[in-house]
Design a protein around this nucleic acid. Sequence first.
DNA 1: TATAGTACTATACCATAGTATAGCGCTATA
DNA 2: TATAGCGCTATACTATGGTATAGTACTATA
Lengths: 117, 117
Amino acid sequence: MEPTDVQHSECLSILRPVRDALDVLNGKWKLPIIVALTFGEKRFGEIAKEVHGITDRMLSKELRDLEVNGLVKRTIHDTYPVKVTYELTPHSKSLGEVIESLRKWGTLHRKNIMQHS
Amino acid sequence: MEPTDVQHSECLSILRPVRDALDVLNGKWKLPIIVALTFGEKRFGEIAKEVHGITDRMLSKELRDLEVNGLVKRTIHDTYPVKVTYELTPHSKSLGEVIESLRKWGTLHRKNIMQHS
DNA sequence: TATAGTACTATACCATAGTATAGCGCTATA
DNA sequence: TATAGCGCTATACTATGGTATAGTACTATA
């Protein structure tokens, strides 16, 4: 193997965690839902109101996705009538850096595109 | 408006550049193609060989996408027979930080999932 | 009794991302 | 003359993400 081959296969192995991260954030609704939960726990209906345009079906599905990925905690309160709330987990807070990094590059990229068109 | 509303709308406006960045990296093939071009310019056929499993159709489409987004430069060499090469632009190098940030979180996330299952 | 809210699920559909396979016009080589 | 490589494009298909609309079992309120 040549040196570039070694470097190349290293790059490829780096891609797996990168893909993992992208998959967690992917889709139209994940980030808006996370934003909605940023300022404290909320009920299903409250999130639905804040995330404009989302259908109940999608909200239900995406919340389950986020729960499986350990970003959101679902709590069923033992009251009458039953109350269900969702909140961000500590793990989800660690996303802050990634989002900031994406935001910075996205802003830079937008400027770049503007200039060259 | 309450204070949280202000903060909430701020978060939403931050999402646009984040979406932009995610869209550029999205899809199954963008990152592997970028990796293939990391160590210098390459011809269509060479990239096709390095990015395992990609079809000509997809490679053609994704290269055009990357070119439109200013990450890849396409050069037609005035030789017989004509030679076409692709290379990364300086702008694409600025992706390094973002990818590193995603890689770090992706690794952390994987550990987190392993523990809680 | 009727209406509305709560937290969903079911069914059907559509649009986009990606795959599979083939072909094109060109040139170089055997 | 035939075969293979080059850089693609065309056509048709499937799979996934997302939308639209309705319905459920329960409770609270008028």
